[in-house]
């Protein structure tokens, strides 16, 4: 019996490594440990073994069984590995390029806009939105623009025919004309008319000027404006905001300065210069970056805020101009051509 067991184990050791498939394996396994298997048969013979030899025979059978199980496990492991390898196929060449086009890219104006919005959201400004088609009230009247101000002229502003009717752009008065907004300040007016102070909003958006398209002018471009209205807002707060914005955008050491200026909707008004030595393609110490000021009391009156209680500031700038400065782009038309060689540079 001992001998038979050893032969059995030896046979298995030579047979099982030859097994190539699971059915072959199952068949082979059955030949040893199946109901009619050789080991099973030997174990059935245990009853015939003399009593005194039984412990030894038992040990031998167990020993053989364990050996066989090792063989089976090894064979199964080998089979599983082979199956996996077959499923995986040959290894990849990781250096081949991905055949999928991409990645997608954000437009530089989006990148700059979102960066500015992130900076402003940190100091409590929510992003506001409003229509690009506006009326004279929201674009001019409420912003204290005199009735005969040149900005309202048809030479500078796009108007719609008096017959044009817009379903979702509200008019303040029936007689006023529709136009394409010349600045995003109209969003400030709509926001103030809608919600009571205090408010803090940033309104980025597309604006329109009736102008020749060239390297620095485009019929439509983008602005970003901030408005803060609260009790006791001061000129110093406005300067603090500008310093914060440009330090956040360009890093510590960035400086801003105010130059007195005139806008009908702010008083006092300033133009904002930025210290720009570290920007690409700039070789001046200061460059103009936007306009700002304390909200004119007339604007508050127009939207029903009491200027005796509320004060505020507003700041506005051109996003194209900012993007041109940040990235060193020298022609505004590139923003609207969408040449992929341009778009891919900023993502």
């Amino acid at each position: 019996m001992q001998e038979e067991l050893s032969t059995l184990v030896a046979r298995a050791a030579s047979e099982l490594p030859q097994v190539r498939t699971r059915p072959e394996f199952e068949a082979a396994k059955a030949r040893y440990v199946g109901p009619n298997g050789d080991l099973t048969r030997l174990m059935k013979q245990m009853g015939a073994v003399p009593k005194e030899e039984r412990p030894a025979a038992g040990r031998a059978v167990n020993e053989a069984k364990a050996r066989l199980q090792e063989q089976f496990d090894a064979a199964l492991r080998r089979l599983t590995e082979a199956e996996l390898a077959a499923e995986l196929g040959p290894p990849v060449d990781p250096t081949l390029p991905s055949p999928d086009p991409g990645p997608g890219t954000y437009h530089p104006l989006t990148l700059v806009r979102e960066e500015m919005c992130r900076i402003l959201r940190k100091v409590g400004f929510a992003v506001a939105d409003g229509p690009e088609v506006e009326t004279e009230f929201y674009c001019f009247d409420a912003l204290n623009t005199p009735a005969d101000h040149p900005a309202r002229d048809t030479q500078d502003t796009f108007y719609f025919p008096s017959a044009a009717r817009f379903g979702n752009v509200t008019k303040k008065t029936a007689g006023e004309k529709y136009l394409l907004r010349t600045h995003t300040s109209s969003v400030q007016i709509r926001t103030m008319l809608q919600s009571p102070p205090p408010i803090r909003i940033v309104s980025p958006g597309r604006v329109y000027r009736r102008d020749t398209t060239d390297a620095t002018h485009s019929a439509n471009f983008h602005q970003l404006e901030c408005l803060s209205v609260d009790r006791g807002v001061t000129v110093r707060d406005l300067k603090a905001l500008l310093d914060y914005i440009f330090t956040a955008l360009l890093g510590p050491g960035t400086k801003t300065r105010f130059r007195p200026h005139y806008f009908s909707y702010t008083e006092p008004s300033f133009e904002v210069d930025l210290s720009a030595r570290h920007l690409p393609k700039v070789n001046k110490e200061w460059i103009e970056i936007g306009g700002c000021g304390m909200v004119d009391p007339a604007v508050f009156t127009a939207v029903g805020y009491d200027p005796a209680i509320w004060t505020g500031y507003a700041f506005g700038m051109g996003l194209e101009r900012l993007a041109m400065l940040l990235y060193g782009i020298d022609d505004i038309r590139y923003f609207y051509q969408n040449d992929l060689r341009f778009l891919r540079q900023f993502a």
């Binding site: 959201r121 100091v123 409590g124 929510a126 992003v127 506001a128 939105d129 919600s195 205090p198 408010i199 803090r200 909003i201 609260d230 000129v235 110093r236 707060d237 300067k239 603090a240 905001l241 310093d243 914060y244 300065r257 105010f258 130059r259 007195p260 006092p268 300033f270």
Partner: peptide, 24 residues
């Protein structure tokens, strides 16, 4: 302010009390 000089506006920290407004 013009005659005082706008370059002399002293620096300050941004005052930003929380407002519940959400992006449009």
């Amino acid at each position: 302010l013009r005659l005082h000089g706008t370059e002399k506006i002293p620096p300050a920290a941004v005052a930003a009390p929380g407002l519940p407004g959400e992006d449009d």
